[in-house]
Structure formats: C-alpha cells, structure tokens
Amino acid sequence: MQLFIKEYCLYCDGEIAPQIDWGSFFLGPEKKLLCESCKNRFERINGATCRICCRPMEQIAEQFQHDDLCNDCLRWESNRKWKHVLNQNSSLFVYNDFMAEVIARFKYRGDYLLVQYIAEQIKPLIVKHSFDYLVPIPLSKERLYERGFNQAEAIGKAAGFHTTNLLTRVHTEKQSKKTRAERMDLEQIFRIASQSPAIDGKYILLIDDIYTTGSTLRHAAYVLKAAGAARVQSVTVARG
C-alpha cells in the first residue's frame, strides 16, 4: 500500500496536499480531484430559490420576487403556450466568474476530463429526481463535430446514468449571441428523435450545463410535453 501518491488538481494541476487522518490511514487516501483552493471557488446554490428555475432569491431585487417565483418564471407561466411546460429546474452552482471559466474550458475548449468533477458533484442532485429518461440537451450535428462531444450527455454518463437521446436539434446560431426576447421567440429548435422510445406518460429529466434564460430547456420541454410526457424537470450544473 502506498500512503502518499502524489495527486494533482484536475483544474490547476497544482499538487494536492495529502490529508492524513485515521480514515486515510486505514482505508488508504481517498482520491481527490481538485485542490482545496479550486474547490472553494465553486459557489453552491444554497438558501431560498425560485420554485421553478432555482435562481437564488438573494440575487433578485425585491420588486422582482413574486412569492416563491422570480419575475422571469412568472412571465413564462403567465403565457398560455409556456405555462407548466418546464415543471422544475434544479441547479448546482452559481454562475460566477470561476464557473464561467470552468464551463468555457470544459465545453468550448473541450477539456473533457473536467467532467469527472462535475459529474461527481451533480450525481446526488440527479439521484434526488425520479425519472424514466435522463435526456441531454442535444447539439446540432455541426456543433457536435466542432466540439467533439456533447457536454450534457458527457455529464450524465460520467455520473453513471444511462442517457436517452429523445431529441435532435436543428442547427441554429449560438444561443449565447441572442437576446432574451430573441430566445423566447425562437421557432422550434428541437424535434423528437426519429427512433425515440415511447414518451407518453413518462417522467423526463433534462440535463444541461447551464440554465441562463431557461429558453433552451423550455423549448425542449415543450416538444416533450407535446409528445405526451407527464412531467419534465431539468438539472443543470450552473444557474446563470
């Protein structure tokens, strides 16, 4: 047995100081992915959040809080088309500067290995839900080729779940270049995949890296609800 294997932080590649306690003494050191200082830069979502989108209430000015809903969700829910489409979203981390850096490196630069930490963290959140299908938000063919992997699918799989591609995406420009109004108004960007199993009456859990305006997830949920899904929830790593 080797007590001191050098471990390096998955994010900064700094050496991780070995922690020695009775547990590690008897069981061998527990494998750590990140150093303390990188770990501490993630900001977990705690406390009161919007009932639907998981936005921390403390980020929202009082006049934009409506009981347990944020202004955005109230607007979605008061629109006939969008009411009850996305039942609920849960997110893990606040989208702070560090989270933006992590997601950029994981998704755009394509540093796949970061999935290990993200998956480890999001797993308990996925477990909390009951669902028939865990469905990653799909990329268009072009975007998938460009990135080499679908970040949402990678997270779900690395967390140990079977993912099901119920949806396909029609190629459009990048979401992040659009305004909120443009996003709300998008024509349908998702379709039910041609070889999809039965959706009628099923509980669906969508997975994506980030919830920004909620437009992507709601569009996906809309298509699924139209195909008969009984409930559509979502989990995301970050809440923008």
Binding site: R105, R109, G110, D111, Y112, L113, L144, Y145, R147, G148, F149, N150, A154
Partner: peptide, 19 residues
Amino acid sequence: GSFACARCQKQCSYCRKCL
C-alpha cells in the same frame, strides 16, 4: 485525457497542456 470523440467515433486522447 480521452473522450468518446464525435469526429472519429473512437476513444480519442487529447493533450490538456496546450488545450
């Protein structure tokens, strides 16, 4: 690192150093 690559349809190793 390596990932299931959508380009080559294989497990594809990549360099993290000059990523």
